[in-house]
Amino acid sequence: MDELDRRIVNALQGGFPICERPFAVAAEGLGIEEATLIARLAALREAGVLSRFGPLWKAEGLGGAVTLAAMAVPPDRFEAVTALVNAHPEVAHNYERTHRLNMWFVLATETPQGIDAAIQAIEAETGIPVLNMPREAEYHVGLRLEA
């Protein structure tokens, strides 16, 4: 990543225009050519610096549902339970965290009922209670990660 890559990542974490030639508009703001911006974004995506470039959709607006769930997994069963949980396609992200509740995963389903069904299936397969922690309120954040 060079200085231009950093400027691109810092400037374009939101506000990408909706118009016929949006890359040309964004490039002008950065003082570069449209083709340069497109090539840089493609390289950043290829290198994994960007996981994506485009709209960030909110699941609830689409009729789907998302929740955060947590489990206290006994350490000696951790790998086996990870495999059981990850096998569910509804599990989008799963993290090991430093806590007695040591497994935290995001469930995303096409319908709200899908969340309950996935939680019940995971509890039945693992024998471990799943704590369901859906968002009750979302506070608007302004953070942009600095590259």
Binding site: I8, V9, L12, Q13, G14, G15, F16, I18, L41, L44, A47, G48, V49, L50, S51, R52, F53, G54, P55, L56, W57, K58, G61, L62, L145, E146, A147
Partner: peptide
Amino acid sequence: RLLAEGAIRRIGAVPNHYAL
């Protein structure tokens, strides 16, 4: 419209925290 309604949170680069 979807951006104004919030169905789209934002449009742009989605960085990988670890890669940065």
